[in-house]
Design a protein around this nucleic acid. Structure first.
Lengths: 109, 109
DNA sequence: AATGTTTATCGTAATATTGCAATATTAAAA
DNA sequence: TTTTAATATTGCAATATTACGATAAACATT
């Protein structure tokens, strides 16, 4: 096969997996770090920052957009991408909650 | 192609992507949530908990193990898996740092 | 209107991931 | 030692992801 059986898992589990998938490629991490760094919406110079061809970057941007993490505004003939702070905060909480669910009293291993 | 050009990105970016990839499948999230919940190292009943065949679960366990997130101890003829708290804590910090790097002063979008 | 710039989409190739049946391995139990 | 139970590995099919050249679409500029 190869198709994930997402219908057999909880909504929450699928949500976490989907967000994680958006972060699961160094190019997308690089895009997000760039957007975090420049502290302003930056357009197509993301392409110049990355060691990838323009269509590839466009594809990664699309995935981040589909995940809701970034949004794009038309600005002249360029497009201005930036992080959606609301979604970013939501995702931060989801991961924080997951990571904090650990129980410190070891029983074995 | 299809092969990630990981050599063109920073170590940190690749690290984040690798950790995220481990969380990027609902089955693996389900395994981790189960291990978090039972608060003890649980062995092969992970297979019974998941809607997947034994070899598939074994494969997901292997990926989590390769990512360093869990470790397996032989316990009789069963194997006891549990979360590596040190790695868990390290990963928690990595994501916390990433998520907190956001700058609240919006400039556009 | 013609041209240039920027970004998206299409088509396609290479590779990776997911899933499972069959089988191997390992160690306990009989 | 044979059997049984638990887990891993192999082999393979289906699907997804990554990457990019070619091209299209959108818009500004000339």
């Amino acid at each position: 096969m190869g198709a994930t059986k997402s219908d057999h898992f909880t909504q929450k589990q699928n949500d976490i997996a989907t967000i994680a998938k958006a972060f699961a490629h160094p190019a997308r991490v690089a895009i997000l770090e760039y957007l975090l760094k420049v502290d302003a919406c930056i357009c197509g110079d993301i392409v110049n920052e990355l060691p990838l061809a323009q269509p590839t970057v466009s594809q990664h941007l699309k995935e981040l957009k589909n995940a809701g993490i970034i949004s794009g505004n038309i600005e002249g003939n360029a497009i201005c991408y930036c992080i959606d702070e609301k979604v970013w905060e939501k995702n931060r909480k989801i991961f924080e909650t997951l990571f904090e669910r650990i129980n410190k009293k070891k029983t074995c291993c």
